[in-house]
């Protein structure tokens, strides 16, 4: 499934990264804690979050996220999007975290692979 398919499923707005919407997505990770994103999210994963600050965009870059979906209709300020433009597509969906995750899961997007081992 591509990011464009995800945009359709989530009825999402693309905030930036229009030219990279053909990226493939296989796994996703939903979380509002930066360290948990860094600890558990595998590379090339779609990040789903309600955080809209600069840190989440840096984190997406560090964890090699394939894209970021902001839930609940949230959008980072334009200044944050422009200053931190990393080439990673940023999307905003009106759905809340549970519904957004459920829709993607039922369409075949699995949880990311880097689960806890203990």
């Amino acid at each position: 499934m591509t990011l464009s398919d995800i945009q359709t499923i989530l009825n999402a707005e693309v905030l930036c990264g229009h030219d990279a919407m053909d990226r493939e997505v296989q796994t996703a990770f939903a979380c509002d804690l930066i360290s948990e994103m860094l600890a558990y999210a595998g590379s090339e994963t779609l990040l789903i979050t309600s955080l809209i600050n600069t840190h989440v965009i840096h984190t997406a870059e560090v964890m090699d996220a394939v894209g970021v979906v902001f839930v609940g209709g949230k959008k980072p300020a334009d200044a944050i999007i422009n200053a931190n433009y990393t080439g990673i597509p940023l999307l905003s969906t009106p759905y809340l975290l549970y519904k957004c995750s459920g829709l993607l899961f039922s369409n075949g997007i699995e949880g990311c692979k880097r689960e806890t081992t203990e």
Binding site: D32, L33, I34, S35, E36, A39, L51, N53, H55, V56
Partner: peptide
């Protein structure tokens, strides 16, 4: 409030 303080920092660095 910014998403930090999950208590994962040091264990994460060790991993």
């Amino acid at each position: 409030e910014m998403g930090f303080g999950a208590g994962m920092g040091l264990p994460n660095m060790k991993k």
